[in-house]
């Protein structure tokens, strides 16, 4: 077991204000939104930045939620508890501003699609993202899972930063998808 004080020091070093590891449920997200709302209510951030942070946070966490739902509804394989578990952190540094970090398992077979999608978004300017968002909004059907393929575009558009991501192989079937979004 990691020394709890070491864990604490690491969280201080990385400016972590909230972290969670486990199953991502709708009730959990409701609580996280409430915690972050009261955090932001008492912070000295300007209202525009607060709204932006909240908006991007919702989109990032729902992205994880929908990835997890996709795994759970996967009938091809039963997914074990650990694979059904995700991590997220919210950090705030004096110089770096807010950062949202999420990590979750996805099927390795889906890695290339997701990578191509994010690379395409990362290569776009703000105006191009706006046009792409409108195209996707009017063209795509909303899937049962609720995702419309718009989440990543929205995150890039609202944050004004490139999406920082990586994939790590876990087993033959699963990879771990890490996402870091900077907001300042």
């Amino acid at each position: 077991m990691t020394d709890l004080y070491t864990l604490y020091q690491n969280m201080v070093r990385d400016d972590i204000i909230l972290s969670f590891k486990g199953d991502i449920t709708q009730d959990l997200l409701t609580s996280v939104y409430q915690i972050m709302e009261s955090h932001l209510d008492t912070s000295l951030e300007e209202p525009r930045r607060k709204k932006k942070l909240y908006h991007i946070l919702v989109e990032c966490l729902q992205n994880v939620y929908h990835h997890m739902e996709a795994l759970k509804n996967d009938t091809k394989n039963t997914v074990d508890e650990e694979t059904n578990s995700a991590i997220f952190m919210i950090a705030r540094g004096d110089e770096t501003g807010y950062r949202i970090l999420t990590g979750n398992h996805i099927r390795t077979a889906n890695v290339d699609d997701l990578r191509n999608k994010i690379d395409k978004i990362n290569a776009m300017t703000h105006d191009e993202l706006r046009v792409f968002y409108r195209q996707q909004l009017s063209a795509t059907e909303l899937s049962d899972k609720g995702g419309a393929g718009l989440g990543m575009i929205d995150i890039a558009r609202k944050s004004g930063h490139k999406i920082d991501y990586s994939f790590q192989p876990v087993t033959d079937t699963f990879s771990f998808f890490s996402l870091i979004v900077n907001i300042n």
Binding site: K51, E59, Q62, L137, S138, L142, G146, G147, I153
Partner: peptide
């Protein structure tokens, strides 16, 4: 609306 997520954006449309 103060906020809406991308899932709602399709429903609004």
């Amino acid at each position: 609306l103060e906020y809406f997520n991308t899932s709602s954006s399709k429903c609004l449309l």
